[in-house]
């Protein structure tokens, strides 16, 4: 086995795609997002097909409040920007900046998730249980799957940040941070459709 020779390596302009592994990861992850598109489309379609099936339960008009959704949207949009800043810092070779902006992203993600949990609790109190109606089930499934993605993203990025807190930018971790940030943007993309299709079209 080749001993690790610690010799200086200079920063390539795309550290995330500088190795074959990095290139593979990049491409594979994008393809995965292509698949996720269909996954969320199936959930959106189910929701849209069932959103009038409220049975005796509350309707979306009874429940949705735009102010909360607006705040959540702004938080998630901003978290997208912070992760963009993180990537710019990575390409600049500024490891500190990368770490700080990534933590900011995680923080904003956690705030978003907190609001979402609060929102669900309010709805349940109002009488919209998971099993109340087809509308309820499909709403919680769609928005909950998105929330699950946010949670996974938070855990994933935190793991990376802790694992590499002192490592500097390397050819191994640059692709990892990069695909994590792609994942985060994708979460935002899905949210854009959720706030439009579920909330704005539901009030």
């Amino acid at each position: 086995m080749a001993e690790a020779v610690k010799h200086e390596q200079t920063l390539p302009s795309h550290p995330e795609k500088a190795t074959l592994e990095g290139k593979n990861k990049f491409l594979g992850f994008w393809f995965f997002l292509g698949g996720e598109t269909v996954l969320f489309a199936s959930l959106f379609g189910t929701y849209l097909g069932l959103r009038n099936g409220v049975a005796d339960g509350p309707t979306s008009q009874d429940l949705f409040h735009l102010d909360l959704v607006f705040i959540m949207t702004m938080i998630l949009l901003t978290s997208s920007l912070t992760s963009v800043f993180a990537m710019i810092n990575m390409k600049k070779g500024n490891f500190k900046g990368l770490i700080i902006w990534m933590w900011a992203t995680v923080f904003l993600g956690a705030c978003f998730l907190g609001f979402e949990i609060y929102e669900f609790i309010v709805y349940v109190d109002y009488g919209l249980g998971f099993t109340t109606s087809a509308f309820a089930s499909s709403f919680y499934t769609l928005v909950g799957t998105h929330g699950g993605h946010v949670l996974f993203g938070i855990l994933w990025i935190s793991t990376l940040l802790i694992r590499y807190r002192k490592a500097g930018i390397t050819l191994t971790n640059a692709p990892k941070f990069y695909v994590a940030s792609l994942y985060w943007h994708f979460i935002d993309v899905v949210w854009v459709f959720i706030f439009t299709v579920v909330y704005l079209m539901g009030v």
């Binding site: 996954l39 099993t131 109340t132 089930s137 499934t141």
Partner: peptide, 25 residues
């Protein structure tokens, strides 16, 4: 994946996507 997820939630957690009496299809 989504189809199976829905069927699982319906069978094991009482979701109602396919229960016509409460608005399912």
């Amino acid at each position: 994946t989504v189809g199976l997820l829905l069927l699982m939630l319906e069978r094991l957690f009482g979701a109602t996507y396919f229960a016509v009496d409460v608005g399912g299809n």
